[in-house]
Amino acid sequence: MYTDIVMDHFMNPRNVGEIENADGIGEVGNIKCGDIMRIYIKVENDVIEDIKFKTFGCGSAIAASSVATEIIMGMTVEDALKVTNKQVIDALGGLPPVKIHCSVLAEQALKAAIYDYATKNNLEFEGLKGYNPVEDHDHHDVVDIEF
């Protein structure tokens, strides 16, 4: 059902936990649907110096969170905003179709964390233009992804 990479990230998740005095925190998903993802970021000179996550959800939700933190660690904020769920899926070696929304959740949680950082610091980022944190959170809407 899952690739070896998914299982590795699920069994040995990278960057689990919290960052004290994080510069941005993003939480998406909802408890009714069975998955909630929270991402913490530490930003220095526009670079994401540290990133951690906490996730309530299935194996692929945890794996997607883990692999997303690996992708994003050390990126500039603008580059991080360009990371898509497709990259998360690719890094995991693929996800079953019913689990695609887990990768969307990871992308959204990151965006929400950067939005939090931007709002707190009165910053504007190209990748956040038109971003609405409330609208963006319903990950169970139909997700169109081309493979």
Binding site: Y2, M11, C33, F56, G57, C58, A61, I62
Partner: peptide, 24 residues
């Protein structure tokens, strides 16, 4: 505070086969 499928996968890694009524 935890989800059933993640629990099943973790148990399976310990050699235990169970099932769950979670959505996943």
């Amino acid at each position: 505070f935890i989800e059933g499928e993640a629990l099943l996968l973790s148990l399976n890694a310990k050699g235990i086969a169970g099932s769950s009524g979670s959505a996943c």
